[in-house]
């Protein structure tokens, strides 16, 4: 082969390799995307049945029921509600009335079967229980602040 042909073969080979790699990566990406749905979306049948997805909302108060290791609770966006079933240990920050994201599948029985439950907590934008500390601080504030004024 002449050097020029060699170079051409190199480039073509490289391009083919890149194309194959890109296809593989995109295929894998597509197969592993989890879409995020709200209870309203699910009730409106916007979400596919039996496909991995994420469901987000608030844990409805008074709906958390345990039966052995299986926990059932309702997730709501204040408009619609979806029942969730999860077997295992819930994360530390899981609480009634708090935000939750569940990853799993919607089954034909109308229950969302979660494989993973995430409860998140945010620093600035925080749930009241997390910020109880400042209550104490604020109470004494007036006495400290007055001399400074």
């Amino acid at each position: 082969m002449k050097p020029r042909h060699k170079r051409l073969a190199f480039i073509v080979g490289g391009l083919v390799a890149i194309a194959i790699a890109a296809t593989l990566v995109l295929k894998a990406l597509e197969g592993n995307l989890a879409y995020f749905f709200s209870p309203s979306d699910i009730v409106a049948n916007k979400a596919p049945v039996d496909h991995t997805m994420r469901l987000g909302g608030l844990v409805k108060k008074g709906t958390v029921k345990r039966e052995g290791l299986t926990v059932r609770f309702d997730v709501t966006d204040n408009a619609e509600t979806v029942s969730v079933s999860y077997t295992g240990i819930l994360p530390d920050l899981f609480q009634e009335g708090q935000g939750v994201v569940a990853q799993g599948r919607m089954r034909s029985d109308g229950v969302f079967h979660a494989e993973e439950v995430l409860a998140k907590h945010d620093e600035t934008y925080m749930p009241p229980e997390v910020a109880a500390a400042l209550e104490k601080a604020e109470q004494a504030n007036s006495s400290v602040a007055q001399p400074a004024l």
Binding site: L29, L33, Y35
Partner: peptide, 29 residues
């Protein structure tokens, strides 16, 4: 990728959707 999807949604190119990329993608790829 989630950012790219958000951007496309913002530009009205695709239907509104929020996504996350699962661990299996990273593990296998």
């Amino acid at each position: 990728f989630p950012l790219v999807v958000d951007a496309f949604v913002a530009l009205n190119i695709i239907e509104p959707a929020k996504i996350s990329v699962g661990e299996p993608y990273f593990n296998s790829m």
